[in-house]
């Protein structure tokens, strides 16, 4: 069929369509530019200054890379960085592995049973994080929490006396990781169920006909086809783990060995206002965190691409 020449009329229509499209985009674009792009650039800029929120205006004096040099000599920041990495290193693989395991166990289920499982695992995701945290706080409570009651002498008798779950350095960070885990697995499970359901069955059957074992079918056929989903889950879980803040703020305020970079940024920027240049310093932490997330995401992308 011959290609129709573009008339002035169709061009005008196209222009109108474009304008309408841009208008639809406008609200999101305003937010994106105002609350994502601008703060990103401002953060980098301010990290090179000794800005202090008390001082007039947003920018202080230019101090070059001083804030970054100071950061890596700051034992509080290094401790926070270590804790953040522990959270990432523990929670990302466990979330991925657990959700893949649950996903592969339930994706063949049909109808209401599948919906019920999806609902159960997704519930912590849609429940408000503050509400979830308050419930966990009660469960972990040193004096009347359910964990101490169940595990203590009056329950299973697994522990003597009480464990101060959120006040003891040996347990607090792991308690945070456990909550993070329960609130993070919902979405990956739903995604894996969907990805497993979309695996090309002809390839699976062909592999089975060729005598492949269940493991080989999974590893060589299904896993390869689920790689984009896995990559997405890895990146999202990594970012969420790096940005763990609300749990720390609500449960421990960074104490008992649970200080993370995100909490430390908030604390430095808004609590230590008497410290000179605290705002520039907090922004430098933000830049370092962004660099780490960027590097890790790039590595994940590269590995997934090679796979």
């Amino acid at each position: 069929m011959a290609k129709q020449p573009k008339t002035a009329m169709t061009r005008a229509l196209q222009r109108r369509e474009n304008i309408a499209g841009y208008l639809f985009m406008l609200p999101s674009l305003i937010f994106f530019l105002g609350f994502v792009v601008f703060p990103m650039f401002a953060c980098v800029l301010i990290s090179l200054t000794d800005a202090n929120m008390i001082s007039e205006g947003m920018l202080g004096n230019f101090v070059g890379l001083d804030n970054f040099i100071k950061l890596f000599q700051d034992k509080e920041f290094l401790e926070a960085l270590k804790n953040t990495f522990i959270i990432v290193v523990v929670s990302v693989p466990t979330v991925c592995a657990f959700s893949l395991w649950v996903g592969s166990a339930i994706y063949k289920l049909k109808g209401p049973v599948l919906s019920a499982f999806r609902c159960i695992f997704y519930l912590p995701v849609v429940t408000g994080s503050v509400a979830v945290t308050v419930v966990w706080q009660w469960m972990y409570n040193n004096y009347y929490g359910i964990f101490n009651q169940v595990l203590g002498p009056k329950g299973l008798g697994l522990i003597q006396g009480r464990i101060n779950w959120l006040g003891d350095e040996r347990f607090a960070l792991w308690c945070i990781i456990l909550i993070l885990f329960t609130t993070s697995v919902g979405q990956p499970i739903v995604l894996y169920v969907s990805a497993l359901g979309n695996v090309d069955q002809t390839l699976v059957e062909a592999a089975q006909v060729d005598g492949a074992t269940d493991f080989q079918v999974f590893w060589k056929v299904k896993w390869a086809q689920m790689m984009p989903t896995t990559l997405y889950i890895l990146v999202i879980t990594t970012i969420n783990s790096f940005q763990c803040f609300a749990l720390i703020q609500l449960l421990t305020k960074g104490g008992a060995g649970t200080n993370t970079v995100m909490y430390h940024i908030y604390y430095t920027a808004f609590k230590l206002t008497e410290r000179a240049g605290h705002f520039g310093y907090a922004n430098a932490m933000g830049v370092v965190l962004a660099i780490f997330i960027g590097i890790l995401s790039a590595v994940q992308f590269k590995l997934a691409k090679e796979k």
Binding site: R16, E17, A20, F24, P27, I30
Partner: peptide
């Protein structure tokens, strides 16, 4: 239809502002 879309976009933008 297009008029409705444009109007809708304007209303959305106004809501945001």
């Amino acid at each position: 239809m297009k008029t409705i879309r444009k109007a809708l976009a304007l209303v959305l933008a106004l809501c945001i502002v």
